[in-house]
Design a protein around this nucleic acid. Structure first.
Lengths: 340, 340
DNA sequence: ACACGGAAGTAACGCGCGTTATTAAAGCGC
DNA sequence: GCGCTTTAATAACGCGCGTTACTTCCGTGT
């Protein structure tokens, strides 16, 4: 079978054209310190590179230098806004180090996850980022230990791997504080499944903020709901249908979809947002938060920051430097819109 | 500088362990046709691989075989649901050929796009997928011609490159047809910017469906709106505030965010969805469509299919086969929910 | 006895590049 | 002229693997 591809330009071609040896070209390309290259020679070489349209072969370079330049990123789902943000953050940060990101999705399937890991190791990734869509504990296959690994939005059940997590407690605190500052004293909290870390942390923050404001938390104002619009709708109805004196004037929702359900319950009762009832969401899902009417004030999970921080840590690990902290938490910023 | 990395296992290690030559190991690994390897020898080799935890070096293999195994995928934005779907489709399809996807985002910046392209070419991608977030014409840098390229959700202004596009016309037809089948005869159409391909194609489909049903399209029912919830809200108000005889009983919206705005206008007027006014959206943005109340019936842009089809075409091109069609269109499926 | 043909396996080259050790030339003091 | 240092550049090896051409061994037919 004849290969129809025209042979690519190699470094030897450049060398011949410039009338020097291949080694000299390599020195110029890599700015080899200690190599004395006269400007004239350098110019000739760069000129030859330009004329021939030479492009270094990254694979060959990696092989010779024994540095692949890859970092791997494994997520559960590529679809969905969260993974995309992590990718964005990691990608842009990696670029700065002239590294490339190898991205794969496990789709929640252990077999696929193992396959992805295999591929990554065959490509000699110098580090691995493992990201989940929701904050929880995970257990990685043993092979992941062959290479520096950092967990993003999840933590190691065995507690050995470094991880980066959103600061749920300060998030809950910040959201509640925002509502307190707006004058609300009875704040309903439609929480996520109370067993997961996000729900636990945020509730702690919620209660701390109340206490700091001299308010004793009223457990009846906290309702765990299904993490859907419908679930939150039901929960919101329950809170809003109480006698006026008992009714919350603000709702803190576990995520933006739930806030969406709460909006419906509020509007159905002829109440106005934020005048009669203020709402704060969580997750900052642009498609929801920015297009609800009125636009939703919400907290963002710092996925992009977590991605960049992840690459930061990997870069350190890959360089053999020790980590200062094995468990990094990142704040959830408040995004002001119009629902408070 | 001492390298602290323990040397990885190579094929020679395996060969030594199994008591054969490196060549034989290679033959076994690649199922080389024509090579006669007795079962006993094969077994010894596989055993050695297992015991040593050997993993082929993808980079070295690519170099020797002169086949990188990479396809490149350049998108405008990684964040956002569309790119993610393309990635998912392309990724899963590529996997089948034991290929990996190199993903980069241009972020709308030509410099960044060029940099990404450079990197891809340095990594010797065997093909390039270029995807946009919305259907339109693009012009690629010349370097993209160095390698087989397929456009996804966009087309070449010069008309040279093969492309994959959503079938907007049949989408508009399908949406309208669905509403006709539900008994509606006055169907409002809140369209996108009328200058873009999506708006043009869908309107053609809309009008064809009406004519096929024996209805003469009423231009006053077609309103181009800003592609936002607010814009569509305004447009919907205009349509709904007409005298009852003139008022549409169904709205076909240019995208799901716009449908969201239409919902608000409808609900404000005390009208019920779908009983008084039916709504069909476009784009199937899960976060909106599936969580609106009632859930939105909408058409999906076939991003995932376009991604897989793109890799299909690239694989053919990379293998030197000619393409049957240079311009492929893919249907936009209708997703039934509860708004019709 | 010989040639022969297939089975089993190997030596050796090349892929494109980084890097070390080495050479050749040039400058300098005497 | 001789030694010595700095500058400029190269030959040669290795990274880990695919592949081609070649060798060795053994059974078979005549």
């Amino acid at each position: 079978m004849a290969t129809n591809k025209t042979r690519r330009v190699t470094m030897s071609d450049v060398a011949r054209r410039a009338g020097v040896s291949r080694t000299t070209v390599s020195f110029v390309l890599n700015d080899k310190p200690g190599a004395a290259i006269p400007d004239e020679t350098r110019r000739r070489i760069l000129e030859a590179i330009d004329e021939l349209g030479y492009r270094p072969n990254a694979g060959a370079r990696a092989l010779a230098a024994n540095r692949s330049g890859w970092f791997g990123l494994i997520t559960e789902i590529v679809t969905g806004p969260f993974a995309a943000e992590v990718i964005t953050g990691a990608q842009s940060r990696a670029w700065g180090d002239r590294r490339f990101l190898l991205i794969a999705a496990s789709e929640g399937d252990p077999a696929q996850e193992a396959a992805a890991l295999d591929q990554m190791l065959e490509h000699r990734v110098e580090g691995l980022l493992y990201a989940t869509t929701w904050h929880r504990a995970v257990t990685l296959p043993k092979v992941a230990r062959e290479v520096p690994t950092v967990l993003v939005n999840c933590y190691d059940a065995e507690g050995e791997l470094p991880c980066i997590l959103p600061d749920e407690e300060s998030g809950g605190h910040r959201a509640t504080r925002r509502l307190l500052d707006a004058g609300h004293t009875r704040i309903g909290f439609i929480n996520l499944d109370p067993a997961i870390p996000a729900a636990i942390g945020r509730r702690e923050g919620y209660e701390r903020a109340l206490r700091e404001a001299g308010i004793i938390p009223d457990p009846s104002l906290v309702i765990p709901g299904w993490a859907t619009a419908d679930g939150a709708y039901t929960a919101a109805c329950e809170l809003l249908d109480r006698p006026a004196a008992d009714r919350p004037t603000a709702l803190f929702c576990g995520n933006d979809r739930m806030a969406m359900g709460a909006y419906d319950a509020i509007k159905e009762r002829g109440l106005r947002i934020p005048h009669d009832v203020a709402v704060v969401g969580f997750d900052n899902q642009e498609l929801i938060a920015a297009y609800l009417r009125p636009k939703l004030t919400t907290l963002a999970l710092p996925f992009e920051s977590m991605g960049t921080k992840g690459v930061d840590m990997l870069a350190a690990l890959a360089a053999g430097q020790p980590l200062d902290t094995h468990r990094v938490t990142i704040d959830c910023p408040l995004l002001e819109r119009s629902s408070v």
